[in-house]
Design a protein around this nucleic acid. Sequence first.
RNA 1: GUGGUUGUAGCUCAGUUGGUUAGAGCGCUAGAUUGUGGUUCUAGAGGUCGCCGGUUCGAGACCGGUCUUCCACCCCA
Length: 457
Amino acid sequence: MAKKPSVPKGTRDFSPQEVAKRNYIMETIKKSFKLFGFQPIETPSFENSDTLMGKYGEEGDRLIFKILNSGDYLSKVEEAIYSEKDSLKITPKISEKALRYDLTVPFARYVVQHQNDITFPFKRYQMQPVWRADRPQKGRFREFWQCDADVVGSDALWQEIELVQLYDAVFSDLGLKGITIKINNRKILSGIAEVIGAEDKLIDFTVALDKLDKIGEEGVKKEMLEKGISQTAIEKLQPLFSFDGSKDDKLKSLSTLLTTSETGKKGIEEVTFVIENAQKLGLKVAQLNLDVTLARGLDYYTGAIFEVSAPKGVQMGSIGGGGRYDDLTGIFGLKGVSGVGISFGLDRIYLVLEELQLFPETVEANTKVLFINFGEAEALYAMQAISNLRAKNIPAELYPDTAKMGKQMTYADKREIPFVVLAGGNEVKANRYTLKNMKSGEQVTVDLNELIEMLGF
RNA sequence: GUGGUUGUAGCUCAGUUGGUUAGAGCGCUAGAUUGUGGUUCUAGAGGUCGCCGGUUCGAGACCGGUCUUCCACCCCA
């Protein structure tokens, strides 16, 4: 045999059982998407490079899978650029297409391109794979699925509230209790940066702050210093590090910190509106928490920022994220369209449900009854019954070969098919069927109507 | 992209300081059982020790490279 075949790093095959479980998650999410009034779209798996490049920050560009041009692509590269051996310069010359990195940027492109056909506010959902040239880790793949719901063309904060409810509805349906929806607002972060005089360092500031629960207070301060944020500025942040208590306490001390920042005050106002109304409406399983250190937003977030973390005790990064972006479509030439959206990380949700054993046993659609094959005449007799069962929506199949019965029974056993029908010469003659329950071992001989009745509950 | 880690039968893994023909459990195939699966018993098949190169009389083991796995960083779902 030749080399053992394999799949590329960070990609996976899915068995029938795995597909069944993934479908269960996707159907659950889709159900809520529809219930909340979102409509599906799909976009190509690859886009023109300039649609994607530069939209996710420097780091993002590195993680985008580039597709090599067709034909003799190297011959078209100018000698000077070629001999320079600078990958960054050569890449755009030899690659003009790239694999989708997320669903939000292609969606923005879609909105701009089809703006005349879209009725705003436009609520769309999209469930497709995305690709990142990242190094794999636990819960981190190079090919994974995102399930996104976004609203564009409305800046009403009720959308944020609905998205919180949407998260709650989906995780409630999945039986995933104890999840936390963390919420923050980019305006609060901007306000803080403004107050401490580090406006020009907003990104570095937020990235460092985001690591608080991971590297601790000292670690954050150290990183901020390294990024060129002054000691006096960092001292002004002190209230943030001892930030605790109820949401009212948090909001009060934030207000004090941000009295001089109009932007900051607007952020507090927004986040208060969302939290208060979401709580008035009630949440089933999710805990909604204000987390001022939450910054993991991509560069384009301008208002609310969301992140969903798995229940405590499950070692997993965020299982969902999202936020508001006031001007995403601006990059593609359509100004003044505000959008807000959330994403569900299908692959990570799968790992969490698996770990907590929350998949219902019924997710695997399986054949309900296997007919033993006794020979040609009996097979025909069996096939007639099978047609009748299938007409009643009962999944049934005939063992294709006239193998030994032990082998056929073993097959049913392995496939976990709950019933077997034995219809040999005696049954054919009597126009009856022997139905065996594989779990209990009991068997009864019945006619076709009784058979349908017994299998069709 | 940086640092570390892993790879031996279909699966999970043993394999001593380098030494004859690389093992176990599970699974698989056949039989005990010609109309009955799971339990039991018996027999059997199955390996280029990830791949390429090097050191050595001799490499599964040591060295280099490469691919893969997992982990940390970066970043993220």
